Deep mutational scan, measured.
Amino acid sequence: GSLMYASIFGNVSAIIQRLYSGTARYHTQMLRVREFIRFHQIPNPLRQRLEEYFQHAWSYTNGIDMNAVLKGFPECLQADICLHLNRSLLQHCKPFRGATKGCLRALAMKFKTTHAPPGDTLVHAGDLLTALYFISRGSIEILRGDVVVAILGKNDIFGEPLNLYARPGKSNGDVRALTYCDLHKIHRDDLLEVLDMYPEFSDHFWSSLEITFNLRDTNMIPGSPGSTELEGGFSRQRKRKLSFRRRTDKDTEQPGEVSALGPGRAGAGPSSRGRPGGPWGESPSSGPSSPESSEDEGPGRSSSPLRLVPFSSPRPPGEPPGGEPLMEDCEKSSDTCNPLSGAFSGVSNIFSFWGDSRGRQYQELPRCPAPTPSLLNIPLSSPGRRPRGDVESRLDALQRQLNRLETRLSADMATVLQLLQRQMTLVPPAYSAVTTPGPGPTSTSPLLPVSPLPTLTLDSLSQVSQFMACEELPPGAPELPQEGPTRRLSLPGQLGALTSQPLHRHGSDPGS
C-alpha cells in the first residue's frame, strides 16, 4: 500500500510541476520586462504597450523563439521550412505564380514574418522605404497627419515599386495596425538579389506586381527641396563636378596662354591676372594647382613670374625650331616645348642647366612650328573623362623618358669634360720664339709635331656638333674642335714665318 501511495504521489506532483513550468517561465520573463521598464524609466503609455505586446506574443508563440529554433537546422532544411511557412503567400499572390521551385525557395529564405499588435506603428512618415510588405492577416491604416487616407487588409501590398527607383524613397505617411496583424516583408536588397539570379522571372514579377498603396513621397523628385535634403551631399558634389568641367572646357578654348597655377587659371584673360583667384576666387580649394602655386600668395601677385606667355621676339635665322618633346602628345598638341628640351639645344645650356634650372624654367623657349593648343594648358582630366590607368601609364612613360634624357646628358657632359682635359694635357705650358741651342744640326726643328685630335665617332658628340652648327654659343662658352686643319689655341699665330727665318745662335768662333 505504501508503494502504491508513493507512486501516485510522485506522478501527481510531476504533472503539477509540468503544468506550472510554463507559468514560471512566463513570470520570469515578465519580471525581466518590468525590470527593464523600471531601469530605463519608460513612461506609462509606452510601458503599457510593452506589457501588452509581451503578453500577446507569449500567448501567440508560447514563449518560443522561432528564429532561434529555425537557425538550429541546416540551410537546406531551413529553405523547406521557410517554404512551408510562406506557402499561403507564395501560392495566392499573383506576382509569385509561375516561378520555379528554386526561385520560390530563394524568396522564402528572404521573407521575414512580423507580428504587430493593435496601435503599433510599422512605418513612420519620413522613414526610408527599405522593404516591401505583404499583409497575411489583420488590417492596417495609413495616416497623413491625423487623416486616415487608406485601410488595407489581407493580401494587400504596400511599399514602393523598387524597379522604378535606384534609391529608396521616404514614406509619405504613417502605417498603423488596427488589429493583430501578420506581415511578410522582404528587404529591398534581398528581393533585387533574387531577381538578379532569376532574370526570366524578374520581368514577370515586375509586370504582375500591383502595389495597393504606394508609400513613396511624390514630392521626392529631382530638383525638389525634399530631394535635395535626401541627396544633399551627392547633389552638391555633382554640381561641383559639372562646374569644374564647364570651366576646364572654357580653358581649352584659349591656347595662347600657358599658366603654371593649374587648370583653373589657364583660361583667365590678361585683365584677371591681378585678381586673387581668377574664376576660382569664390572657392580657392575647388581646383588643383601645381607646386608653384604656393608662391602666388606673396605680395606682387600681378607681377609674379609664374604666369607664362609666349615671347614675341624673333628667332635667329640659324636657330632650330626646338628640341624633341618629352611626351608623344607634344608633337601634336603643344605650341611651347618643355623646359628640359631647351637644355639640349647647345653645349652652353648643358654647362648651365643644373646651376640655374629654376631660373631657366621661365626663360624664352623655342617654339614648335605648329600653332596647336598648349601642352601645359590642357586641363586636368576628371576620373569620369580619362581612366586612372591611362594617366598612370603616361606618367610612367614620361618618367622613363626623363631617365633616358638624364643618362644621355650625363654621358655627353662626361665626354666633353674628358676631351677638354685631354686638350689641356697635350698642350705645353708655354712657348717662346727663341729656342735653346741643340747639340747638333738636327735641332733646327722649332717644335715637335703635334698629332691632331682623333675624329669623334660617338653619337652623342655628333649631336653636340649638330647643335653647335645651329645654335649661337654665348661669349663665355668653350669652343669644341671642328672639322678641318686643327691648330692649338695656345700656339702663336705666325708659326709659318718662324720656319722661314734663320735661327740666331749665340757662340764663340775658336779662330777669332
Rank of each mutant, 00 (worst) to 15 (best):
Q254L: 10
N163T: 09
R301E: 08
L461K: 13
P255H: 09
S202P: 01
V434K: 08
S357N: 07
S345A: 08
P371V: 10
V450R: 06
V149K: 03
R236C: 10
D251V: 08
S357H: 03
L491E: 10
S410I: 08
F234N: 11
N219I: 12
L395R: 05
S410F: 13
L326E: 07
D509H: 15
P199D: 06
F205E: 01
K241R: 09
P441S: 09
F467K: 11
Y165L: 04
T336F: 11
L405P: 01
S352T: 14
N214I: 05
E331P: 09
L143I: 11
P284S: 08
L417W: 01
I378E: 09
E193R: 07
E231R: 10
G232S: 09
S382Q: 15
G232E: 12
T436K: 13
L456Q: 09
D249M: 06
P263S: 10
F311P: 15
S352N: 08
L456V: 10
R388N: 04
I221D: 12
R216E: 02
L308H: 05
L473M: 04
I142T: 02
P446Y: 12
G223T: 15
E231L: 08
Y165H: 12
P510F: 11
I186H: 01
E324R: 07
T252C: 15
S374Q: 14
L143M: 09
R167V: 08
G153V: 06
P474G: 10
G169W: 02
D509E: 08
A430S: 10
D146C: 03
L426H: 10
Y431M: 14
P387I: 10
S341P: 07
N349T: 14
I211T: 02
E471V: 12
L242T: 11
M468E: 12
S259W: 10
R385Y: 15
T436Y: 11
P371N: 12
P222A: 11
Y165I: 04
P437Y: 09
G440E: 07
W206Q: 11
P383S: 11
L192W: 08
R358A: 10
E210R: 06
V464D: 14
G262K: 14
K170W: 09
N403K: 05
Q254I: 12
Q421T: 12
A397V: 08
E392S: 05
P299K: 15
T372D: 07
G226N: 11
V258S: 13
S227C: 10
G355N: 05
T457S: 05
R315H: 15
S462C: 08
E229L: 09
S460Q: 10
T442R: 15
T212C: 05
L340F: 04
L132C: 03
G145K: 13
R505V: 10
M468C: 14
S345M: 08
T444H: 14
E231A: 12
L230N: 11
E210D: 09
L426E: 08
T248Y: 10
P369W: 04
L152E: 01
S460V: 05
A397W: 04
R422K: 06
V149W: 04
S227Q: 13
P288Q: 12
R245T: 09
G145M: 08
F244A: 10
S382W: 05
S451G: 12
L178Q: 09
R408D: 05
R240M: 12
P316E: 13
